[in-house]
Amino acid sequence: MPTYSNDRTCFSRRGALGLVAGAGLLLAAMPAAAQSTAQGQAHVEAAMRDVLAVVNSGKSTGQAVNDFQRILSKYADMAIISRSSLGNAWRSASDAQKRAYVAAYQPYLARKYGKRFADFKGSSFAVTRVRDAGNKGVLVEGEARVPGRAPIAVEFQVSNRSGSIKIYNLIIEGISLLSSEREEIGQMLAARGNNIDKLTADLRTAG
């Protein structure tokens, strides 16, 4: 993990700008004060326990995907993740289009990532650091240990802004789920002439 030292952050992040930003974050974070870093950590640990139970169960891919979808709706804010994946196109969509998209996107995401579980059989997970991220909630960092491999850095963004505490982003070795999904969905939408209905229909069978 500590391959890269912490001192490569930009000067502005440590200097006066950082202080100003910190004060701003503190004010903005007031409504979220009830959410503690301990709660964030406990939420991520519970989610990872459930995920690893599926990964290590040796279930078929189909069963694993079903279980994973249940885990996602329990622990993750799928509404905001779905919304974010559509990027700017979300704003121009009708309510009916939004509902249909979200309904198609959730199982698509579960299929896409559930399929990869086979690579991580025998894995364990441990939280290494938890940070208060102000109005962005809590950042929980951990290491996934896969037998015979270098540990994989996994970070979770957790927030209670949906009304209850939920995971809303996952960063694996620096690769953000929200960014990757937005890029890929954006490409798929462009390939369909920005037709959301067509994209939604195709997502039902994709992944």
Binding site: R13, I80, I81, A133, K136, Q157, R161, N169, S176, L178
Partner: peptide, 8 residues
């Protein structure tokens, strides 16, 4: 923290 995404 500054570079984290904030979809909310």
């Amino acid at each position: 923290i500054e570079n984290l995404e904030d979809p909310y």
